[in-house]
Design a protein around this nucleic acid. Structure first.
Lengths: 229, 229
DNA sequence: AACAACTGCGAACGACGTTTGCAGTTTACA
DNA sequence: TGTAAACTGCAAACGTCGTTCGCAGTTGTT
């Protein structure tokens, strides 16, 4: 009856507040962090689908079942991977040039993070435990937004929406949405065909991310700053 | 050698341009559409994870393998489900009150669609074949944006970004992101704690979606309409 | 009549996440 | 110091998944 891996019981505690190991027994051959590092390396190289318990365990030279001495589920592993990746957003910048510039800078950092770890796009939208690094990032955003006079709820909204919009841009860069129109009867979509036929015009402005984020943040945080069309 | 289900070969043709059945053989017991309808019903009721080939087949009173007479893969099924759901956006509105109002209206329709079929949020971000209904929706957006004088690429960007932002709002309504902070050392996040302690202020404005979409579309489509903070 | 193209279906394959049982190791406490 | 509890690694197994395969039966063409 003394035999219970880390997943004992109905998983009442989140992974963050569960001790990595007890006081007795042999020193473990691996560690939570080593597992997470191996999993991130796998995800970076071959995508999130390649992060199977067997593959991660194989990278560490052990069997899949052994991982459950350190984690209680694959979801736990994904949570840990996410939080560790978010930690790469450190160090957080000073608030030199006003809160808006600083927030846009943070958005750019997020975009770069998504570029470095594309699997984050497949992971962030899933309901999961918020780890300490994510909390620290949130905390830092709130700090930057301190001079803004608006309800805290609005700030949370704005931060979440910024992250979301950045993820949209990141997905666009990753996917390069090339839909194949082979074998489709194009005559049913006249406006689409006309738009494709039209000269491409000037290249899309490079500061699209910046402009979008500025507009979004000011629109969400400063009252009465919405312009009509 | 004459035995080959719909998935014969390396799947060179997308599902949209593959005939549902040949000219010989017994009349099929089911149809692509019936399968898709059953799958959507399952997804609406119990989420996308409940849409397994066995479950869909079971709802139709057959076995999992039988579905491969009509589809070549589960991804095909997801594509068909998506396109059918997008078809519910019809009929498309007239352009009565200007392109901006009409586009915002389309955004609201999308939001309602995400509410009716939450599984769409798990499906749209995946690279997939663009079906005829999705193309029709795109075509309609381009039609609405006809009076806007800007490159076609910018219109594509704006439409995609609108869909993305709407999906962010839809996800917020679905998830109701309640992260549990139990067992977390809050003293490490002083600004976060302070923000939580602050009175909640006035309720968040109900027209947040509308304001965000207006700001986004004008910012992306009308040059020089970005304001600074 | 013969053959090819189709149909449904049940069994099987490989991969997945996870559980279990067991043998061995270390610590806590009598 | 001895013993029991807590821990370790590991291989095997379980159930589910998407998908493939083989076979028997049905339909259309020639």
């Amino acid at each position: 009856m003394s035999d219970a891996p880390a997943s004992a019981g109905p998983d009442r505690q989140p992974i963050w507040s569960r001790p990595e190991r007890g006081t007795r027994g042999p020193t473990p051959a691996h560690s939570r962090d080593a597992i997470v590092v191996a999993a991130i390396a796998l995800a970076d190289a071959e995508g999130l689908a390649a992060v199977s318990m067997r593959a991660v365990a194989g990278a560490l030279g052990t069997g899949a079942g052994s991982l459950y001495r350190y984690l209680s589920s694959r979801d736990d592993l994904l949570d840990l991977m996410t939080d560790r990746a978010v930690g790469e957003l450190r160090p957080y910048p000073q608030v030199d040039g006003g809160w808006l510039d600083t927030m846009v800078l943070l958005g750019r950092r997020q975009l770069a993070l998504f570029g470095a770890h594309p699997w984050l796009l497949d992971v962030i939208h899933r309901p999961s435990g918020v780890g300490p690094e994510s909390l620290a990032w949130f905390d830092n955003c709130i700090r930057i937004l301190e001079p803004v006079r608006c309800p805290a709820a609005a700030k949370f909204e704005a931060i979440a929406m910024m992250t979301g919009v950045v993820s949209l841009f990141a997905r666009r860069e990753t996917a390069a949405g090339a839909f194949s129109l082979s074998g489709v009867d194009l005559t049913a979509y006249p406006h689409l065909v006309a738009a494709f036929g039209q000269p491409s015009g000037p290249a899309p402005r490079a500061d699209l991310v910046e402009r979008t984020l500025r507009g979004l943040l000011t629109g969400l945080l400063l009252p009465g700053s919405t312009e009509a069309g």
